[in-house]
Design a binder for these strands. Structure first.
Lengths: 111, 111
DNA sequence: TTTATTTGCTACATAATTGGTAGCAAAGCT
DNA sequence: AGCTTTGCTACCAATTATGTAGCAAATAAA
């Protein structure tokens, strides 16, 4: 899968609309989950894999590469870590947590 | 693809963590793009398809069903529309727009 | 300094998702 | 009645994701 880069055609926009490039990046399996889990603290590949509960190493590796190339993640002495940009995105995603909690009430747990 | 429902195991959480269910839902191709485009106003299937520039009817239909079942979208006399929950999500996604604009500066347009 | 362990992946095969094109049935004009 | 538009579905090809195994390099232990 090619990296969705602002300025280049992406899923959602032939003109490379910035926001659509971001949606393409974040809208890949596990992207947001990885950012969320990394916020808990920098960690190694294997630890991150455990935090994500059920991600395959193949997918984790792909996402890590993409997110790194997109300046959201970097490697430090502590392993993988969110960059400042990554932390910013996390802050933007954060409100989704409480919203999701409320949203969940709509679902009948017996279905 | 089954609907990622809070409380049931989803991509990202065997326990059905609400947030992970939301990430699973939004993290499917076009989910966020559709919400974004629908915010411009209620519209018909074909118009929505045009707004999305390059979505296939297959995928559009699939996403519409999922988002409808997830209470984010509904059908009105004007066609497809965001529900109140859908509008709420849109407001949470909105800040990503300006962030993406800034983020785009990191990418060398000549690459 | 051998001998484990742990870590960060890659290989490979299979399954699941997405995309693209064609086209059809129903509804709405004319 | 015929023509158009709309909202899809069928079908197949292409792309992504999953799962398991395992290997090379780095680190720790003996």
């Amino acid at each position: 899968m090619s990296l969705p880069t602002p300025g280049k055609p992406v899923r959602g926009s032939k003109s490379g609309n910035h926001l659509m490039a971001l949606f393409d990046l974040l809208g890949r399996s596990w992207s947001m989950g990885i950012i969320w889990r990394l916020q808990e603290g920098s960690c190694t590949f294997r630890v991150l894999q455990e935090r994500c509960e059920s991600i395959s190493p193949t997918t984790l590796n792909r996402r890590l590469k993409e997110l790194t190339q997109s300046f959201l993640i970097e490697r430090t002495v502590d392993g993988y870590a969110l960059t400042n940009k990554g932390k910013e995105i996390f802050l933007l995603l954060k409100p989704l947590e409480s919203w999701a909690k409320d949203w969940a009430k709509n679902f009948d747990t017996n279905e």
